[in-house]
Design a protein around this nucleic acid. Structure first.
Lengths: 335, 335
DNA sequence: CGGCATCGTCGAAGCGCTTCGATAGCTTCG
DNA sequence: CGAAGCTATCGAAGCGCTTCGACGATGCCG
């Protein structure tokens, strides 16, 4: 193994000079720098990660706590994980993945042993049990989601209330007065993910303000849930002219299929709107207009909030990202 | 931060004694051990990971190189990742996730800086470019998949040839003589993943031996691919009595749906068989009899092969897991 | 009952790096 | 022209742990 000593010897300087040349924390003459660079290249020197962690202040590793629930949507989950890795790598950080029953205890383990500089947490719920842990460890952390009232730890999320308002406004402004809505399965609500409540409350208020009647259904994860949600909506409110989705991709796919099967003209008779889609709504059988979850942006900001905390810079408490509407033709004026 | 010195002082022993008590590498008297345990508990001591890595031989971290192709199936990918994490944690190892354009270069980075003890590689292709890297670094490694002729690095995979033979045998033995097959998209083949070739060759040979005619189609990833594959199969061989799937879940779902739509009686008229399913074939609209990819087992063995290499124990070169048939009622005797 | 393992413990070296303080050699300016 | 201030470099301390060799205290055997 080639160490900093070998480089120093080859370049004819002391190891501290090599170290400073590497970190740039003190000025180095051009000639010395050249000799050191050559030595490093010749020997193919790579600093020993553990030595660096021990002597330096940081590990250049971030933990990602990624709990995967029974009812979780795997593709979405994977997208979040990938996005966090990408965002971390952009800052030369590596990601340690905490999963499979270790998302909570693992934080304590890797945090208290100084294996990581901070932690990003997915799958956040109101009253998240990881909150006291990161507080206790004083570990730089960020939540993707909002675990209730938090003012000491960064949270990043879509502004679900604004998303609901935007959805209602756009739908109402096009003249729709009776709107069906298919929401996340009840199990999500029981888990107190928070975002559903925030969405629903704003939805209700805005609908009242705009004079829109909303008929709701929740689709579970079992096969056929999306299909029967559509059937039930149409039975209860045959006069509806729009359907708003706030649920996972499989449900949307089924619902679309059912509408086509029933010969409903989309968007001629019924407009469709995807709210906070965690999937790509442009790749559906009927591409959906609506608001896409800004997943990459959320992850990037969460990662950057952790870095801010690591560096002692002030990190924003709660960042709610503005919903961005994208038109894909599925939402048109009411017939 | 509480260090081993603090524990030693609190217990009234030297730090080496504490270290030996922790590692169990030398005997410690019962009384001393008790005092040390108490001190550790009182102070809530956690060994500093970096110090441990530096002084000791290993890092207790494994890298997971998880390339996600454009045409990759996210849920399957996530399952592999989870399974590797679970297997690693069972041995008290953490997993560093290399992804998003860093699956290859990242191996060199974390390997040469001694950040990890070894690496598990997913998404293996024939002539995999990661092979020379792990050889060059002499990094303990294991492939999930078989990158061609390899005798120095562990590979774990399903025995796809045996799976093909088993599929043909079971189907043929039930009297089916004309069998449709829907395979992976051509892009998979171009990438030389290897397993498709192994499957296809064995399939062809066994079909010839058993006197079964196989009509093949490949379904791409675009919407409707599974549907049209079914239509084409039925057009080319209307007399077929079984369909063999060797493809991703979305294709199977579409194909099943199309069969139902066409009023085909499954399995009365047409039996269905899932070969090497990377998804759960029991949760499909029509649960499929067949062979499930032993994903957890593959990951566990790969991880264990890396540990064997780390420990200097002999690791098996190529482990091909025996296919296991499971009956879910979709395969019955030919009408 | 003296010599010799064995057991339990200790001190110190060292893993490879970062960083602090010191210093030699220059330049600059009153 | 000498004090002051830079710039570039070095030596050494130290990060928290593991592990080697040493050593006193026991126990055991002939």
């Amino acid at each position: 193994m080639v160490t900093i000593h070998d480089v120093a010897k080859a370049a004819g300087v002391s190891i501290s000079t090599v170290s400073y040349a590497l970190s740039g924390k003190r000025s180095i003459s051009a000639t010395t720098r050249t000799r050191i660079d050559r030595a490093i290249a010749d020997l193919d020197y790579r600093p020993h990660a553990a030595a660096r962690m021990l002597a330096g202040a940081r590990t250049n590793i971030l933990a990602l706590s990624a709990p995967l629930r029974q009812d979780g949507h795997l593709p979405t989950h994977m997208r979040f994980v990938s996005a966090v890795v990408a965002a971390s790598r952009a800052h030369d950080y590596d990601v340690l993945l905490l999963a499979t029953d270790d998302e909570v205890s693992g934080i304590r383990r890797v945090g208290s042993s100084s294996l990581v500089d901070g932690v990003v947490m997915m799958g956040v719920a109101t009253g998240d049990e990881r909150l006291p842990i990161v507080r206790d460890l004083a570990l730089p952390a960020a939540f993707i989601g909002v675990p209730g009232d938090v003012d000491d730890i960064a949270c990043v999320d879509l502004d679900f209330a604004a998303a609901a308002r935007e959805a209602v406004d756009r739908i109402a402004d096009l003249g729709h007065r009776v709107v069906g809505m298919i929401g996340h399965p009840p199990s999500y609500l029981e888990r107190q993910t928070g975002f559903i409540e925030r969405f629903d409350q704003a939805l209700e208020r805005e609908a009242a303000a705009k004079g829109v009647r909303i008929v709701r259904r929740w689709a579970g994860l079992e096969r056929g849930a999306g299909r029967s949600a559509v059937d039930e909506l149409l039975a209860e409110a045959p006069q509806l002219t729009a359907v708003l989705f706030h649920c996972n991709e499989p449900v949307v796919e089924e619902a679309e299929r059912r509408l086509l099967e029933l010969g409903v003209d989309v968007p001629g008779q019924v407009s469709l709107f995807a709210a906070a889609a965690s999937y790509d709504p442009s790749r559906l059988e009927i591409p959906l207009s609506g608001i896409t979850l800004p997943l990459e942006d959320m992850c990037r900001r969460a990662v950057e909030a952790v870095f801010a905390a690591v560096d002692g810079r002030p990190a924003p408490d709660v960042t709610l990202l503005e919903p961005r509407f994208e038109d894909r033709g599925s939402l048109i004026p009411a017939p």
